[in-house]
Each structure stands twice: as structure tokens, then as C-alpha cells.
């Protein structure tokens, strides 16, 4: 073999255009990233600014009292905070149970690959249904379907606080039910990824030791994916907390909190949606304060979820 002539090399330094394109692209990317961050900071600052008078006026009492009286200028969002958390916990609990089960079916060789892909697509399609359609479906399908069951439960177990009232129309249970279906795609998609990321060699190890499919899933696959699944649930929770339209339609906007699954209730988001159009300047400030509270809750939940997801990835990388 003859050595190529050293001066005959084809290597060339980057041209001026190459350098310019590289710099501009980096500039563009950095600007977009900065804009996205600025946008978040700007929105938070704006809401905080608008809420500031109300924050100064009502302070912590706003979070611990229950009156919403625009004419008396008394505002408190305790039932809204409680209602937000109660409806989200219920909806996410139902949705997670359902969603994780679906994710298991989609990843653990229960279905032929082609059917798996179809089922995955269908579940993802659920996230394309507009919130208002879910609300209507809740009113016309879920509430009538639940009503006989709910009222039978009330008549039999009425002594229990969670069955303490009748379901006359809108109420917590139908809202939680619809919420569960709305968070299903989030839970399923993220836990599906977490389950799919469980190294195949771990499943093999379980089967090789004589585990049944059920034992392999419960004792090896789920624990290995548990952080990811937990992250999915937290993110779904973040979504449920902020859900507005469907809940405004199904929850019945009663300014009170009840442990009964069949009683109407309220959340921070539905309060804002319902009160905003007819509010005066003082009430708008209070609503902004409520918005700030909601933003705080959502931000907190999402950061926790992101943190957990990030740690999962690290555990999985350590396992490669």
C-alpha cells in the first residue's frame, strides 16, 4: 500500500460560512430558550403583581377561611383548596390504577405487537378529546349512569361521610371519574416508557428462576419501574389540579367542601372560570390571588414529578 502524499490531504478548515451558520444557529437556539424562560417568569410576575393588593389585604386568612363574598369584600379559598386536592386525589387514584394496568398490558407481551401499537394509539387519542366534550359526556352519560348506584350507596351506607349525600346532579364522583379518564393518557404514556425501560435481562432473570408472568411483573418489573410510575402519577396530579372546564361542568360550583363523594364542590380553577366574567376590581384581585395559589400548587407538584423522573433515568443508566 502506498502512503498518500501528505500535502494531498482532503481535510480543509471550516469556511467562513460554516462558522457563521454555526454561530447564528447557536444564537437562535439560545434566544428561544431564554424567551421560554422569560415567558414563565413574566407570567408569574404579572399574576403576582395583579394579586399583590389582595395578598396584602387578605394575607394568610385567604387560605384558611371559606367565605367568597364579593359584596362584603370577604374572600377565602379554603373550600377551593380542599376541593382541588380532594377531586385531584380521587381522579388521579382512579386514573393511575387504570393507567398503570393499561401500561402493563401494553408492555408485557400480553398483546401481539401490532395490536399493542393500535391500543397505544387509541389511548393517546384520549388526550386529543377537548375538555368541554368530556364535560358534556360527563353530564349526559356519567352522571345518569352513576346516579342509581350512588343513591343506593347513600341509602345503604349513608352513615359513612363519603356517602353522606345523594347524587342529585353534578358532584365529586362524576367529576373524579371524568378526571381519571382525562389523566389516563399521561399516566399510561409515562409509565409505559418506564416499564419498557426495564431491561429485558431482568425479566429473563425472573423467568429463569421460575417466576410466573404475574410474579415477574409484580416482583421485578413494577419495582424496577416504580420511580417512573410514581413520576407519571405526580405529573398526572399536576394536570388534574389545573383542569378547569370539565370540572366546572361536572362539579356543580358550590362554595363549600364536603367529604361526600356525591356532593357538589368547587376547585380553584373552577372558581376562577365561574367568577371572573362578573367580577369587579376587588374580586379580580382576589381571583388573581387564587390563581397564584393554584400556580404554586401546580409548580410544586410538577417540580417534584420532574425530580423523580430524573432520578429514575439515572437509576436505569446505572443499570446498563
Amino acid at each position: 500500500m502506498t502512503r498518500p502524499d501528505p500535502t494531498g490531504t482532503l481535510a480543509r478548515p471550516p469556511t467562513r460560512f460554516d462558522k457563521w451558520a454555526d454561530r447564528s444557529f447557536r444564537g437562535l437556539a439560545a434566544t428561544s430558550a431564554a424567551l421560554a424562560v422569560l415567558l414563565v417568569v413574566g407570567i408569574v410576575a404579572q399574576i403576582a403583581g395583579q394579586a399583590e393588593p389582595a395578598v396584602r389585604e387578605y394575607g394568610v386568612d385567604f387560605l384558611t377561611t371559606s367565605k367568597w363574598d364579593p359584596s362584603g369584600k370577604k374572600f377565602g379559598v379554603l373550600p377551593q383548596i380542599a376541593g382541588t386536592l380532594y377531586s385531584s386525589v380521587l381522579g388521579v387514584a382512579l386514573g393511575s390504577l387504570f393507567g398503570v394496568t393499561v401500561a402493563i398490558v401494553l408492555t408485557q407481551d400480553f398483546l401481539p405487537p401490532r395490536l399493542e401499537a393500535v391500543a397505544k394509539g387509541v389511548v393517546e387519542l384520549l388526550s386529543a378529546v377537548p375538555s368541554v366534550v368530556y364535560g358534556l359526556w360527563g353530564i349526559f352519560v356519567v352522571i345518569p349512569a352513576l346516579r342509581p348506584l350512588a343513591n343506593a350507596a347513600h341509602e345503604t351506607f349513608g352513615a359513612l361521610p363519603i356517602f353522606g349525600t345523594r347524587l342529585s346532579g353534578p358532584g365529586l364522583l362524576p367529576a373524579a371519574f371524568v378526571l381519571a379518564i382525562m389523566v389516563l393518557p399521561t399516566v399510561t404514556a409515562i409509565s409505559r416508557d418506564a416499564l419498557a425501560a426495564v431491561p429485558g435481562k431482568l425479566r429473563e432473570a425472573a423467568f429463569g428462576l421460575g417466576a410466573t408472568r404475574w410474579e415477574a411483573i409484580v416482583k421485578v418489573v413494577l419495582p424496577t419501574a416504580s420511580r417512573g410510575i410514581f413520576g407519571a402519577i405526580v405529573l398526572a396530579f399536576g394536570r388534574a389540579v389545573g383542569e378547569t372546564m370539565a370540572l366546572a361542568m361536572l362539579l356543580g360550583n358550590s362554595n363549600s367542601f364536603s367529604w361526600s363523594l356525591f356532593a357538589p364542590g368547587t376547585t380553584l380553577a373552577t372558581l376562577m372560570a365561574n367568577q371572573w366574567p362578573e367580577s369587579g376590581a376587588v374580586e379580580k384581585g382576589a381571583l388573581m390571588y387564587a390563581g397564584l395559589v393554584l400556580l404554586g400548587i401546580t409548580l410544586l407538584i410538577n417540580s417534584v414529578g420532574t425530580l423523580i423522573l430524573r432520578r429514575t433515568v439515572r437509576v436505569e443508566e446505572a443499570h446498563q
Binding site: 432473570a205 428462576l209 416482583k219
Partner: peptide, 26 residues
């Protein structure tokens, strides 16, 4: 069959658990 005929794989594949719990798994 797999409980009577054990297997060791090409890639070490311990479970993400403690040493002791790996051994007690089977």
C-alpha cells in the same frame, strides 16, 4: 421446569435489590 433447571445468563442480571434479596428471590 424453570424451577428445577436454573439459568445463568450472558450478562450479569441481578435485580435492583439488595444482595440478600437477590438470593432469596427464588
Amino acid at each position: 421446569v424453570r424451577r428445577a433447571i436454573g439459568m445463568v445468563f450472558q450478562q450479569p442480571n441481578p435485580f435492583a435489590m439488595s444482595v440478600a434479596r437477590n438470593v432469596t428471590f427464588g
